[in-house]
């Protein structure tokens, strides 16, 4: 099991079938049912946008898909692993090694330079510091941030900071990247630069991406979109052959 949770490459992804699959997922917060039986399949290498109004349950869905939250009912299967049954330590291992995350803001460590921020997940995975910094530098170049390596987050523009966050999320070659409103705090041009940079990299690497957004212009970078409404995905929308 540990090997599956820590594998760096996507080599064991089955040729057919989804890389991530949710069935009848229910999540409650007290009396409120945030997810009310969600079915969703995500294919390997697919870029999926999850849309929906505020409070529809789309962020809760992301947290359940990514193993941040355990569903109260139903199952979430990632690359053959039923993550809804893993304990907290196993889910942490999975998130560190197989999944990447980009959030709306506030995610970079303020006292670390851009290159140090990007190297953090590698250091946590046991990569030696020199090697981690080398790889982080390479990612800065890939995302057009070659001059920004020694800058602190406060010295970066919003778009630059978000591209650093994308680099940090992708530096470990995750199988699935989760992006929660990745352009929510950016102007149109910066948002476009972030999405172009993100898409260039994930398409080249074959990374699966789940983007949570209420912005149709961001969702339009995805291969398809699903709508979450009142804790549900309309029938036939989340699962193609259902």
């Amino acid at each position: 099991m540990t090997a599956l949770l820590t594998r760096e490459t996507a080599q064991s992804i089955p040729a057919d079938g989804p890389i991530l699959s949710a069935r009848a997922v229910v999540k409650r917060f007290g009396q409120t049912e945030a997810l009310r039986g969600v079915d969703l399949d995500i294919e390997p290498g697919e870029v999926l946008a999850v849309m929906g109004p505020s409070g529809s349950g789309k962020s809760t869905l992301l947290h359940c898909l990514a193993g941040v939250l355990a569903p109260d009912d139903g199952s979430v299967v990632f690359d053959g692993i039923e993550i809804s049954r893993l304990n907290e330590r196993q889910r942490s291992l999975l998130r560190l090694n197989r999944l990447g995350f980009v959030f709306q803001f506030g995610q970079l460590l303020p006292d670390l330079t851009a290159v140090d921020n990007i190297s953090v997940p590698l250091l946590l995975s046991g990569v030696r510091r020199n090697e981690a910094l080398k790889r982080a530098d390479d990612w800065l170049e890939r995302l057009g941030l070659g001059d920004a390596g020694q800058k602190l987050p406060a010295e970066l523009s919003g778009g630059q900071a978000q591209r650093v966050a994308v680099a940090r999320a992708l530096v470990t070659n995750p199988t699935v990247l989760f992006a929660d409103e990745p352009t929510g705090s950016l102007d149109s041009l910066a948002a476009e630069q972030v999405m172009n940079a993100l898409l260039d990299q994930v398409k080249a690497a074959g990374t699966t991406v789940v983007i949570i957004t209420h912005d149709p212009r961001t969702a339009a970078y995805a291969d398809r979109e699903v709508i979450v409404r009142d804790g549900r995905i309309p029938a036939g929308n989340g699962v193609r052959s259902a």
Binding site: A219, A220, Y221, A222, P234
Partner: peptide
């Protein structure tokens, strides 16, 4: 409205 949204999103994806 869902059908129209899907049609619009499809066109937006194409243009993007």
């Amino acid at each position: 409205l869902d059908l129209q949204r899907a049609e619009h999103m499809s066109r937006m994806r194409e243009f993007t």
